[in-house]
Amino acid sequence: MGLFAIGDLHFSFAAPKPMDIFGEQWKEHDKRIIENWKNTVGPEDTVLIPGDISWGMRLADAAADLDVIDGLPGRKVLLPGNHDYWWKSSSRLAGQYPRMTFLKNDTTRWENWFLCGARGWTCPNETAFTAEDEKIYRRELIRLRLSLDCAMRQGAENILVMLHFPPVNENHGPSGFTELFGQYPVREVVYGHLHGESSHSMALEGEREGIRYHLTSSDYLEFRPKRIF
């Protein structure tokens, strides 16, 4: 059984929102994701989706996108991004889509790994870090700690963290997120949010201080799920 990841699907099947206004690489990106997913992921695999899943504003709007994801091969573990306004109640989502896991303030397992996460937020020392950013950033640190503590109560020895936002600023300086990683047995970190060549070039990728980092924005992956394990 493999573990894959792909974020920033930006689906909009109910009310089509062409993404190629952000670049030619986004032309019919939804069809490419679906085709690549079917050619890459098997029914026994698991796919992590770290946020910006649907452009829908309400669950009724996002349902068409979630239905498509639900019908794709593999188990799915989803995390909210900054554009997922439709995500209000994880318990309601779990009831409507029992084959998918909606991660928020808790944990779930893949083999001997515990999967934890939070949406995250812009990190301090960004060029435009406001007082409101500080408030949200602190709240997301609390949510991540809740998730990590949930895993530890179940005996976690290996943790993979999902975030939507990068866990560091553009200079890859330490943050509250990286500090938390060091307090728990975090071995892998998956995140998204970054789009375009200039943002991709600033991504934290590969191993640092014993933790492996993966940027999994769909355009960075050329719209193909990335195998983590």
Rank of each mutant, 00 (worst) to 15 (best):
I228P: 12
S198W: 09
F177T: 04
F22E: 09
R208T: 03
G42N: 10
R119S: 05
E209C: 03
N125S: 11
I34N: 05
G81E: 02
R32D: 01
W55G: 00
E188Y: 13
G182A: 13
E209Y: 02
R92I: 14
G117A: 04
L103R: 06
T108Y: 02
W121I: 00
G206W: 03
S89A: 11
N39G: 13
Y191R: 07
T40E: 12
V168D: 00
W37V: 04
W55I: 04
A63D: 01
A131G: 14
L194D: 04
E111N: 15
W86G: 07
V68F: 02
E140T: 00
D52N: 15
G173A: 10
D84L: 03
T46M: 13
E24F: 06
N39I: 02
V68C: 01
H10N: 00
T130N: 10
D106I: 06
G81K: 08
K76C: 13
K38D: 01
T108D: 08
L115C: 02
Q96M: 15
R138S: 05
L72P: 09
P98H: 08
D149W: 03
Y137A: 14
D8S: 07
M19S: 05
V189D: 10
F4V: 07
G210V: 02
K27W: 03
P174N: 14
E132Q: 15
V168P: 04
S199I: 00
L160S: 11
G81V: 01
D70M: 09
F11S: 05
R227E: 14
D52I: 11
D61K: 09
M162L: 15
A15S: 12
F11W: 10
D30L: 01
L141K: 06
E222Q: 11
E140S: 00
M1K: 11
H214W: 15
G42V: 10
P124A: 01
A151F: 08
F129C: 02
E179G: 00
D45H: 02
F229P: 04
G192R: 08
V68I: 14
Y97M: 05
F102A: 12
G23L: 10
D133T: 03
D133G: 03
T130S: 15
G51R: 13
G23A: 12
F13S: 06
E197M: 06
D65Y: 11
Q25Y: 10
A94R: 15
S217L: 11
N158E: 14
E44L: 13
N112K: 12
G192F: 07
G192V: 11
T127V: 11
L194E: 04
L48E: 10
S198D: 07
I69A: 00
S91A: 06
M202A: 12
G117E: 08
R224D: 00
G176Y: 02
Q183I: 00
L3A: 01
N82S: 13
A60L: 11
C123M: 07
I69Y: 03
T122M: 05
Q154T: 03
R212V: 14
P124K: 07
N158S: 14
P16E: 04
H193N: 13
D219E: 15
G7E: 06
H164L: 00
L146K: 15
I6D: 12
G182C: 04
